[in-house]
Computed example of a mutant assay.
Amino acid sequence: MNRTRTTLAAAVVTSALLGAVTTGVAQAQPPAPPLPPVLDLGSLSFGSLGIPAPDAPRLASVPNFRDVAGTGSGYVGHGGTHLNKGVLYRADTIVPDDADLAALERLGLAAVYDLRADDEVAEKPDRLPAGVEYVRIPILSGNIADMIDQIGSVEDSRNMMRDMNRAFVAGDAERAGFTRLLTELAQNDGRQVFHCTAGKDRTGWTSMLLLSLAGVDRATIVQDYLLTNEYNREWAAKTRAHIAATQGEEAAILFEPLLGVEDSYLQAGLDEIDARYGSVDAYLTEGLGLSTDTLDALRHKLLG
């Protein structure tokens, strides 16, 4: 693979937005994705007020911004309790236009946790409302360019994404990052956001852990994971078109699996958890070394 294709593909797999894709392109408000069918939108029995908090705003310039707890009444966790909305958010790179920045300001965010590597941050630094604490917790190891250079088929691309999710379980650096992130989320007050660049891999894994901790069923967790393909549909289409235009249709086909998520990506990480720890709960305590107090604090945020 030539150097240009390797550099471009590395940017894609780390979910770095390509400037050439978005520069000068007006982004329309994305259509609202379908809600997972497991949500009970008729129930209002959650939270201290007995009614659900408003849904997270749809942000055209931060398309994968959403509430960890879901939409409507929120996902259902332990004991049939709906998760608390308006507490923890997930996102892609936070580079809002003025209208979306104003929407973020209205949320009253306390902290943002950026999970991106140094080169990703240098490519597109976050733009945050005044007064929001910004915390860097890079979660990515290995030489992405070397991994990309081994891709010779569409299935190789899929296997790379599966290996990334396995590394969330097996990698020392990755586990250390998730340990710090979940500890910070538990200890800090106020509304918080965590994000990588496309909000799909590192962010998707974190969301899976939080939903599992809250007792959300596995089918709902997988559906939530796959919603990235709806929220990021326009970004993925534009990025694919850019690859095709600059590198050819063959390259676009080859790297297309890197632009979204598939259930097999998440399942690869879950299978690695089962093989090494036996359960997500054991991964949280033994693999990440999280204390009972930390886990209880996270459950309290999510369930009240």
Score class of each variant (00 low, 15 high):
K238V: 09
L101C: 02
E123G: 08
E174R: 06
T93A: 08
L104H: 02
G269M: 04
R162A: 09
A11T: 11
L104W: 01
A26Y: 14
I151A: 00
A26W: 15
I137D: 00
G289Y: 11
K85F: 03
D189Y: 02
I94R: 00
A102N: 10
L226G: 04
T292K: 13
G177I: 02
E133L: 11
Y265P: 05
R127K: 13
G131Y: 04
K200M: 01
L259Y: 07
N232H: 12
P63I: 01
A26N: 13
K124A: 14
T246G: 08
A236C: 07
G86L: 05
F255Q: 03
I253N: 12
L270A: 05
I253D: 12
Q187S: 07
S264Y: 07
G287H: 11
A251Q: 13
T4M: 14
R166F: 09
A252P: 02
V76P: 07
R240E: 11
T93Q: 01
P138M: 01
M164I: 14
Y265L: 06
Y283K: 06
T206A: 15
G190C: 00
F65V: 02
I273E: 04
D118K: 14
A237G: 04
G50Q: 03
T6G: 03
A167S: 13
D217M: 14
A198M: 01
L104A: 02
H300G: 06
D40N: 15
G304H: 14
G152N: 12
K200W: 06
V121Q: 10
P129C: 04
G171V: 05
G171I: 05
L254Y: 09
L266H: 09
I273Y: 08
L211W: 08
M160S: 04
L211F: 12
S157P: 03
D97M: 03
G24Q: 10
V38D: 13
D114Y: 01
A20R: 12
G74S: 08
G86W: 05
A245P: 07
E123V: 13
T4Q: 14
L140N: 06
R218F: 13
A170L: 15
D274I: 11
E250M: 10
G86I: 07
E123I: 14
G304Q: 12
E249N: 12
D119K: 13
T81F: 13
G108T: 00
L17V: 12
L49M: 10
N143K: 07
T183P: 02
